[in-house]
Nucleic acid binder design. Sequence first.
DNA 1: CGGTATCCCCTAAGATACTG
DNA 2: CAGTATCTTAGGGGATACCG
Lengths: 164, 164
Amino acid sequence: MEDGTFRSPGYCGDTDADYDVLQWDTRADCEVRQILDRIADKWSLLVIALLDRRSLRFTELRRMIDGISQRMLARTLRHLERDGLVSRTVHPTVPPRVDYELTPLGATLHKTIRALVTWTETHQNEVATARAAYDKRVAAEQARAEREAAERDAIAREVLAVRR
Amino acid sequence: MEDGTFRSPGYCGDTDADYDVLQWDTRADCEVRQILDRIADKWSLLVIALLDRRSLRFTELRRMIDGISQRMLARTLRHLERDGLVSRTVHPTVPPRVDYELTPLGATLHKTIRALVTWTETHQNEVATARAAYDKRVAAEQARAEREAAERDAIAREVLAVRR
DNA sequence: CGGTATCCCCTAAGATACTG
DNA sequence: CAGTATCTTAGGGGATACCG
């Protein structure tokens, strides 16, 4: 079975007087955090996005999602089903046929996810630029540090040569 | 240094004719996916959320986020800085003081993130209910399977007893 | 076809210790 | 205080094999 998501279930409503009134519950076992971790994982987003268009069979999903293993697809679908985001329908035909589709709840989530993806698409250039700038800064700094180290080294050698 | 984010950088714009026109690029190395993976990770969301209120020092963040290690906070902040979402200001005092704050870009992201968190908060009960129902279904099914197995076992023993 | 079970590897992340 | 460097371990995830 591999387990589900059971750590310490409660422990989420009590305010420890130390955390003050933050808008978010930053504690590790908070339920919101758990849900967030689930939907933010590598494959779930893709699956939800694909199912938004129409219901799909296991193998269809498998073929559409590049790089996913059978195991991970099964796991992901099981999780989404458990969370009530995806429904699973078995057609008792032969060969068997299983359809997955978004539940109404899943559909509402998809809207929100779209917003995130849209943000990413809209700002990917800015992010790319920022990354390039950062990498350049770091590289420059490293080069400078190395040059200075070399200089100090040279001076030290000089001093030692004179002393001897 | 621990590496950055460099797998196969390109390989994102070419349509392989096999994937058809999906609204999303489902391929693993797509830039959008990389950004998504980054911002959707466990700690980034929390950091962004906390910084939205005001700029914070390293240790403040460390204390506010339950369960984060020094290493992960440093890494997360480095990533966010690289992506241009957070800015880092060093005050050359002693003891040193470093402030982190959201950049304008980071602030726009926060709005989107809020939507996601709001969704989670709004629907956490539905998810919890779905989970409970699912677990119950699974448990019931397992119990039934075990009972049937026991029955078959009993019948088999009976048959064997008669034969002997 | 649509899975589950098993093995196994490798990396992400925690703990610890040290530095400017 | 604000980090990096190093070591170690859990578990995420791939490959394979087998069942209904």
